[in-house]
Amino acid sequence: MNVFRFLGDLSHLVAIVILLLKIWKTRSCSGISGRSQILFAIVFTTRYLDLFSNFISVYNTSMKIVYITCSYATVYLIYGKFKATYDFNHDTFRIEFLLVPSAILAFLVNHDFSPLEILWTFSIYLESVAILPQLFLVSKTGEAETITSHYLFALGSYRLLYLLNWLWRYFSQGFYDLIALLSGILQTVLYCDFFYLYISKVLKGKKLSLPA
């Protein structure tokens, strides 16, 4: 494991924990797209079905368990415990527009036509676009709390760091996985606009707000 991969995992973990803590401490999930969080729970579930059949390392197994547990806890906080604070009238992105094409593409373009492999591929495609309901919510309300911006920055950085990891692995081991690579590029590109706003506003102490 190289440093980019490790920092990527760390950044992913930081994002997930920031979101959970934000909701827990403020007793509110306003500004957070429950729909994106449902998609992330689906992503982790379909990707980590190999949890018991394919052992890689204690590190991998523990991270998978933490990611899955945290994503279900987040969904529970949004739709259960703090449902009263959920922005349901702004969180209106139609997730079937992401789920259906990801599923069709996973059947058509995969490494191996087997159930686990198709579900893994589906999770990669779905993850690449799963943040869209959240970005849609931010663009609809025109602003994001600073803590939500930190969450989005950490979550976006994770796949960017993975891209560097894949570049490293390609040159050091000749390893590459086109499905993960192309999806990772798409995923990172979707954050570009946000990265720009984050660096130009949030890091200078201003709240992230979009021009009207």
Binding site: H12, D50, I56, M63, H111, D112, F113, E117, A180
Partner: peptide
């Protein structure tokens, strides 16, 4: 031939 891709990342 079914190529098994090891998914060793997260």
């Amino acid at each position: 031939h079914a190529l098994h891709i090891p998914h060793d990342e997260l």
